[in-house]
Computed example of a mutant assay.
Amino acid sequence: MKWSELKVHTTNEAIEPVSNILHESGASGVVIVDPMDLDKDDVTLFGSVYELDPTNYPDEGVYIKAYLPMNSFLGETVDAIKESINNLVKFDIDIGENNITISEVNEEEWSTAWKKYYKPVKISEKITIIPTWEEYEPVSSDEIIIELDPGMAFGTGTHPTTVLSIQALEQYVNEGDVVYDVGSGSGVLTIAAALLGASHIKAFDLDEIAVKSTTINVKLNHVQDRMEAKQNNLLNGVEPGADLIVSNILAEIILQFVDDAYHKLNPGGYFITSGIIQGKKNEVKEQLELNGFDIIEVNQMEDWISMVAKKPE
């Protein structure tokens, strides 16, 4: 089968909504090509991504590559994708250059070429993320290894929003905690919570592909006995009882369920939010405080913000 690679030149802010548009349009995989991955200091203070070729990366913004089967509907699909991405500006999302190009790839190239973007990376004091096809030897006895198969959909955890989330989990997850992961994506935060000692993790995502990806990666890391993945809209219909809720998602989405998160947390529980751009920082902070949370930490990596809020005991 022949495939067409659709490449969108956009912004970090638009990664999540553009990726969702591509998935909903039938893309069999999405690759995020972020030049920040080339900067050892920017990716993480703890390690780096190795052997990446700078010529594959844009000077600014990101490339989002999607793979669509070449058929008689391809033209209509591409037109619909362009229209949906253009409509993101109505939601105050910066789509940057929004330059879209299409090229043809054969199935063999499609199934292997994207792997060159993913290498092992140490993202916190304890945690290193490795793609399944890479060989890696731990450098210390207490190093925690997360093995991921991104499934050409959600990356391998090196984006600053994920790094910030995992660093917060490392600090606030306690042995035996019940954790809710809202917008689980590849399941990397679910896995991190389990390996850090959580006794039970519920992973929720509206995207069926994400739920499948989470399930696969959880099994790869042998923590399936402590988690459940479910297709769900945020925390709608979810029972209270979490000691910690983590959500690496757009600020606009976080704002929609702050109140729900507060009521689903046990007293003294933590709400870790990430995926917040600078322009939304104050709005998210105010909403958290308005709903009763105490702000414990505000952290930043590159242009991204994460917050740790606590429900009073």
Rank of each mutant, 00 (worst) to 15 (best):
I277E: 13
A242D: 04
I254N: 15
I254T: 12
Q300K: 14
G279I: 11
F293I: 07
I272V: 09
K264C: 09
I253T: 14
T273C: 11
G279T: 15
Y270N: 13
G292L: 02
H263D: 08
L265I: 04
N291S: 10
Q287G: 04
P267E: 02
L290M: 12
G279A: 13
S247R: 01
F293W: 09
E297C: 07
D294S: 09
A261D: 05
I295T: 13
L265T: 01
F293S: 08
V284F: 06
D260Q: 10
L288R: 09
P240T: 06
L244Q: 00
L290A: 14
L290V: 09
G279N: 15
Y270K: 15
I249C: 04
E289L: 02
K281Q: 15
T273N: 03
L265Y: 01
P240M: 05
G275K: 09
F257D: 12
S247L: 07
F271Q: 01
I295Y: 10
E289S: 03
G292W: 04
N282L: 11
N282P: 00
L265M: 04
I295L: 15
E297A: 11
N248V: 05
E286S: 15
I272F: 03
N248A: 01
G241F: 08
D260K: 08
L288D: 11
I295R: 10
L255I: 04
I277T: 14
V258E: 06
G275T: 08
V246A: 11
V298C: 08
P267M: 00
I254R: 07
T273R: 00
Q278F: 12
E297D: 14
I277R: 13
F257Y: 15
S274N: 02
N248Q: 03
E252S: 15
L255E: 06
Q287L: 10
E252W: 03
I245H: 07
G279Y: 11
I249Q: 05
G269N: 05
I254V: 14
D294Y: 07
G241I: 03
S247V: 05
L255G: 03
N282Y: 10
V284E: 04
V298Y: 03
I253V: 15
T273V: 12
D243Q: 12
